[in-house]
Design a binder for these strands. Structure first.
Lengths: 213, 213
DNA sequence: TAGATTGTTAATCGATTAACAATC
DNA sequence: TAGATTGTTAATCGATTAACAATC
């Protein structure tokens, strides 16, 4: 079965298309075009058509794309026509914010359980979750159908947690700790470090606009 | 003055180099090599040497790079050899977590003031900040030397907030709302939407490992 | 029909990699 | 010195764009 290899860059854009289409659908837009989508996302129309062509033919010449239909197709392609359970490790300030974040539920993800290694926190109730001890990750995760781990622990602890998650069978990790994780191939990691994004911008901002505190 | 144009992709990697070098420095590593850095970050040694070559010659043949020196150089290049003041808009759960996040201070950023549009929150104390009304953004930001805005409001409100920030002279926006922002050219936006990263991973996870709740 | 927009191919552009002389 | 690693050039690879026939 000669699968067409989809470039990573294309996969990275699909969630943006999905998000834009969901937005349009909520606004009541029934039909859109590669041009409209492109304007909305700051991309080129040709790129959007090319990206979509990896997966099929979803449009109609002269008309464009049916918003609801394309949204449904992308939902399937990204495997978010189902719900994904996630294990959150770290019940600190960030972990708490993640537990309260409504955006997961709306878009196909939910936190199934919360771990922490702090004896002060273990057993405590956090937003309806009983905090489980981190050293039970390997026991708890497998029989709960969890395939995604979210790391919200301090940088020093993150690598060890990542390995525990991998041992528990986790295949995808969303890492909020500001450190590069080493994981076996086959395990996907996505990193969210706000300072990395800020530093990308300050490069371009130059050393002007002084704000010495 | 014929500036050498640095590709965006290169700029995007510089903060990762800086983070890795800071880490090494804390660990007491005095010297490193393009090979070691590459292994650490999952890149190729040639790419790291090429990236650095846009900015100068920082290494020594046969030896590698002095960790402290390269870290200091990258810090300057990224303009984080100073402190950047940020305005946070949105004092909800996410805003609160951002206010408490220690990682900003450590790496050259700090939140200078917090805005919200909810009358319930305006005037209240949030982690030492008195919440200011969003409609005073244009007044408050200019005379505080703030050049970065952080948006942590619901998606519906994000675009309007972005425009307010731009009017106040903000040139860089870190956007946590799950929506693409339209801003004038010259204003940089970086988007952090965890679900976008999760969906990238679920594409590869396939539709296996059922976890229907 | 005339106008619009797709899907796709070929051309362009840019980024990554390989290789190696320079040199510590 | 011998071994190692840089900085840089040229070659390769891949992604984006332009263009257009197909067709709604």
């Amino acid at each position: 079965m000669a699968e067409i290899q989809v470039p990573d860059m294309v996969v990275a854009r699909l969630p943006l298309y999905l998000r834009a289409l969901s937005h349009m659908e909520r606004e009541g837009t029934a039909v859109t075009s590669s041009h409209e989508l492109a304007t909305h996302l700051g991309l080129s129309p040709a790129q959007i058509r090319k990206d979509l062509s990896y997966f099929g033919r979803f449009g109609k010449q002269g008309t464009g794309y049916d918003v609801a239909n394309l949204r449904a197709r992308l939902t399937k392609i990204l495997n978010v026509d189902r719900t994904w359970a996630m294990a959150l490790v770290g019940a600190g300030a960030l972990g708490l914010a993640l537990v309260h974040y409504g955006g997961f539920q709306e878009r196909g993800f939910y936190i199934a359980c919360v771990f922490d290694s702090d004896p002060e926190k273990i057993g405590r109730d956090v937003a309806g979750y009983t905090v489980l001890p981190s050293d039970t990750i390997a026991e708890e995760i497998p029989h709960r159908g969890i395939s995604i781990g979210v790391i919200a622990v301090p940088a020093e602890a993150a690598q060890a947690v990542a390995l525990q998650l991998v041992e528990a069978g986790i295949k995808a990790i969303l890492n909020y700790a500001p450190i590069s994780l080493a994981v076996p191939s086959g395990v996907r990691v996505q990193q969210i470090d706000p300072v990395v994004y800020l530093q990308q911008m300050t490069f371009y901002l130059g050393s002007g606009s002084a704000s010495q505190a």
